[in-house]
Amino acid sequence: MNALALKKGASSKSAYNLRDPHAERVERHIIAVLVDNESGVLARVIGLFSGRGFNIDSLTVAEVDHLGHLSRITVVTSGTPEVIEQIKAQLGRLVPVVDVHDLTVEAPHVERELALVKVRGTGADRVEAMRMGEVFRAHIVDTTLESFVFEITGAPDKIDTFIELMRPLGLVNVARTGVAAITRGPGKLERERGHG
């Protein structure tokens, strides 16, 4: 018998099975990472996720403090609680990482995403698309006689819903930013720096 012909998820008691995604509850977490804005820092963060087999559901990054050379990376990831803890610990040991916060567990927070949605159509479909856009408070930022580009912001599931509604009305394509998130209320998370 071929030693490698193991059934997936079978009885092997291997360390590799620790991260079997079917074995345990998979949770979605939003992690905010404040980093020194130095060359290669994004590659370092992404390489950590791919090299260790972690998931990236979405990722946004931009400088948030020009004087302090700080950028904020917002990663939406999913994994078992053990994997999420490991992701945070691994991020924390990167040299240019200033701070790691798991917004999902640390504090009430707001999450938003922006999408640009292009829809092509004429007649009733076009009117319906525009009406739906109003319902979802999407702005029309470009138009021709046979198309619209909607700008919509909101939580990811709102955007998902809007995109699904546009599909039969002539959806052409979509550009999404990924999630940006921030804590609610006046305070900062402990040790959180920059314009956070």
């Binding site: 008691k13 360390a15 053990e82 610990a89 040991r93």
Partner: peptide, 28 residues
């Protein structure tokens, strides 16, 4: 460790390490 789920099953474990990512990576 050998087989993870049979590793020292009845012990309470203390782990001293300078690297937080080493803790609970393999063994709780």
């Amino acid at each position: 460790t050998g087989r993870i789920d049979a590793f020292s099953p009845r012990s309470r474990k203390v782990h001293i390490d300078i690297d937080p990512s080493s803790v609970n990576k393999v063994i709780h």
